[in-house]
């Protein structure tokens, strides 16, 4: 029965070289190709959106302005007026993740945010940037005041300092694993339910009833696509807003 078709839920995450022999020679994978497409789409949205320069925007211009204002407002409201400095970075980060998540939902595409290496690299970049900003803004006082808040009882220092250090270091871990796990879970579920459909429809034991029952997993997958669209946007938003919150901490020290 089930042996007719085995569920290979993880094969979809396998990296393969893209762009033919040239891509293979420089280890350019399909994951990087999707990154290029995502970057191209983000740039195209802004370029073609801003081109009409209309006072009353059309649909595409409204979309580009909405994207701009959404991230701009997020930076200013979370970080404060200094947040404008980090706006291009947060914008890049948000759209890199969002486009990766959304493009990954298309059939035959690849979700580069489902690779822990990619999400970890993004998270480490965020945390290094946050630490750099904090040190450049506050100098070495950042380490003394951030990990041991002034006014706290000296006796508690052996507890507070390790806790603060661990919580600081766990940020990139939670940031990267959250995005990675969400993306992997969604895509594994798609694969599993799609496999059910194939197995049910082809089942010799069920006969003609098989294809009828097979509609169930298909319907479930349709619902899942809507849910995954939500997750794709939500995870990109979470990644961007957490970055903003960390940057706020770096600029204002708690």
């Amino acid at each position: 029965m089930a042996a007719e078709h085995t569920i290979d839920a993880l094969g979809q995450f396998k990296l393969t070289p893209a762009l033919g022999a040239l891509g293979a020679s420089v280890n350019f994978t399909q994951s990087n190709l999707m990154m290029l497409i995502a970057s191209g789409l983000t740039l195209a949205l802004l370029y073609f959106g801003a081109r009409p320069r209309a006072i009353v925007p059309g649909r595409l211009q409204a979309a580009a302005e909405m994207a701009y204002n959404f991230i701009h407002d997020m930076c200013v409201s979370q970080i404060g007026e200094e947040g404008k400095r980090f706006f291009p970075f947060v914008f890049t980060l948000f759209f890199f993740v969002l486009m990766g998540n959304l493009l990954g939902l298309l059939p035959y595409s690849f979700t580069y945010t489902s690779h822990i290496a990619v999400t970890a690299a993004l998270a480490i970049m965020v945390i290094v940037l946050v630490t750099l900003v904090a040190v450049l803004t506050h100098g070495t006082t950042f380490f003394t005041t951030y990990f041991f808040p002034p006014g706290a009882p000296k006796l508690l220092a052996p507890i507070i300092i390790p806790v603060e250090i661990i919580s600081y270091l766990s940020r990139p871990v939670s940031l990267s694993i959250r995005l990675f796990a969400n993306m992997v879970a969604g895509h594994v579920m798609f694969e599993v339910f799609a496999s059910f459909t194939v197995m049910l429809a082809g089942s010799a034991a069920l006969g003609h009833l098989g294809p009828v029952i097979a509609i169930g997993p298909v319907a479930l997958n349709v619902i899942l696509v809507g849910f995954e669209l939500l997750v794709a946007c939500l995870q990109a938003y979470v990644f961007a807003i957490l970055t903003c919150i960390y940057l706020h901490d770096a600029v204002h020290l708690h």
Binding site: N27, N32, A117
Partner: peptide, 29 residues
């Protein structure tokens, strides 16, 4: 080696995207 290679390429793409967005696309909007 593709796992690490994708991160290297990803970093390059991210930096280029950042530069293009911050210098060219975002100022237009």
């Amino acid at each position: 080696k593709l796992t690490t290679a994708q991160v290297v390429w990803g970093a390059i793409i991210f930096v280029v995207l950042y530069l293009l967005l911050s210098r060219w696309a975002l100022p237009q909007v």
